[in-house]
């Protein structure tokens, strides 16, 4: 024992305990993910077969086995597609306003703040809003399109944020070089700035898509569920994968629960694939810093 080795017992013990706890929390975080993946795969795989992907639930009673997810898959595809088609241009325009035109203005500050706030709007509130505005006030029927609008509201802030980040990364020199050639600002934005930021924006959009593809609550309020295929997103009831799962759980019979798990498996794979591809692309295209 000397100056260099003495003392500190209690402090060193505290440090050890803290380290242990921190490692433990990392483990705790991984357990649910692994558990969810294992449970969903093992229970979902039972009802997965070719029929499940190619048929609908038309004329299949809850007590019967069989049927499939095709109608819900199409519904999700169309609803998310429409939502993306609306949210992406609007979101990019908002980002352009914030980055290219609005910097430092009061309006831009307000917009930026409320974009952040919108990120926290619960998905069910988005559904309520479309119901009260689009359906109740404007008199449209519940439809896949109404559902898509509610998803749009959830996508919009995410798209704005990523587009904003990406636009900010575009070097100022690039814009100035273009202005110096006498190219108008808006052409510069469309021809130079957006293409430069595009890969980043796309990965951001994919993350937003992954998020809304799994949304259930707003769809429950804005569409009616159906067991049949409906290709027309603008009218009539339309299913989606999350509401399909919800519906099957509500049935509660054994074959229905099998279908619910199978639907959950399809959904989680769909979301995870989009998510992972987006992350990989993001890593690939990330501006090389350091």
């Amino acid at each position: 024992m000397n100056d260099l080795t003495s003392g500190l017992k209690r402090r060193r013990a505290t440090d050890k305990v803290a380290t242990g706890v921190v490692y433990l929390t990392a483990l705790i975080a991984i357990i649910p993910l692994v558990s969810i993946l294992i449970v969903v795969f093992s229970r979902g795989i039972a009802a997965i077969n070719a029929e499940f992907f190619t048929s609908t639930m038309r004329n299949i009673s809850p007590r019967r086995e069989g049927g499939g997810i095709f109608h819900a898959f199409i519904g999700t595809l169309e609803q998310v597609g429409v939502a993306t088609l609306i949210a992406v241009p609007v979101g990019i325009m908002v980002a352009i306003f914030l980055v290219e035109y609005g910097s430092r203005g009061k309006l831009a500050a307000a917009v930026s703040f409320f974009v952040d706030v919108m990120t926290g709007v619960p998905s069910i509130v988005a559904g309520l809003f479309i119901y009260t505005c689009f359906i109740l006030t404007f008199g449209f029927d519940r439809s896949g399109f109404a559902a898509a609008l509610s998803l749009t509201i959830l996508m919009l802030p995410v798209v704005v944020r990523t587009a904003e980040e990406m636009l900010k990364l575009v070097p100022m020199d690039l814009r100035e070089a273009s202005y110096a050639l006498g190219v108008p600002k808006w052409v510069t934005i469309i021809k130079i700035v957006i293409p430069t930021a595009l890969s980043g924006i796309i990965t951001g959009v994919m993350l937003a898509v992954a998020r809304v593809a799994g949304e259930t609550a707003p769809l429950l309020l804005t569409t009616f569920m159906t067991q049949s295929l409906n290709l027309d997103v603008f009218s009539g009831p339309q299913a989606a994968i999350p509401t399909f799962v919800w519906d099957q759980i509500a049935n509660g019979t054994n074959p229905s629960m099998d279908r619910a798990w199978a639907g959950a498996l399809v959904l989680i794979v769909l979301v995870a694939v989009i998510y992972i591809v987006a992350k990989v692309l993001a890593a690939r295209f990330a501006p090389k810093s350091k």
Binding site: D3, L4, T5, L8, R11, R12
Partner: peptide, 10 residues
């Protein structure tokens, strides 16, 4: 057996 914490204290 030397803890860097002690070293930095001294």
């Amino acid at each position: 057996d030397v803890d860097p914490v002690n070293v930095r204290r001294l």
